[in-house]
Amino acid sequence: MKNVKIKSTRVLLAVIYIPVAFVLAFAPVKTNKPNALSSEELLEEVNSSVQFISPDDVADRIIKQDPFLQLIDVRTPEEFEKFSLPGAINIPLAQLLSDEYAYILNQSDYINVYYSNGTVFASQAWLLTRMKGYENNYVLMGGLNYWAETIMNPEAPSSTSPNEEVAKYNFRKGASQVLGGGATENDSAATSILAAPKPPIKKNTQRKRVQGGC
């Protein structure tokens, strides 16, 4: 009989599906999201200060036009307009976690350097993105204030200083000229270079959810 056949198919399906669903119900869930860090892991990183990158290192990379350096200004757009580092892009802290910036912050090809006037906002930005498991993000040590002191207007070392100090001063002096600091004070307003974010490298293209629906 046809109806008997239909019924036995149902029983057969139930015998297969229910145990399979039972296993799935208690199987571990797998995700490919970046691994979020626990508070303890974060504390350890904060304590070891791995998030900082020195202004000299950044200046060196800017001058050498390191293609993998991505400066990210986390201050407000108004402040960014007034002054910003060469090649920097503006992602205000308030918009840090919006989806449109995720592909810039969650990547494995560039060295992202957050900066603000001091280090408070940049450090907050670092902490927020690090918590989500994003890597390759750093904080400019001392922020723009320290940048101005060290790179733009370096203090001449005394004549008794060790050679490394003198070398550092010479580098900073050179850097300040290239980067438009130092004696030419009135130049500082003109250095606001608006840059586009670096294009994502092909293999790391941001994968987007498929669009569907009727």
Partner: peptide
Amino acid sequence: AITAGIGLLIFGLFGWIDLDLIYINP
């Protein structure tokens, strides 16, 4: 519906499909 639902979870479990990227109706 249950066949496809079970299939999707199995595919996800074995890493054959990224369940975060399939379309879910708003």
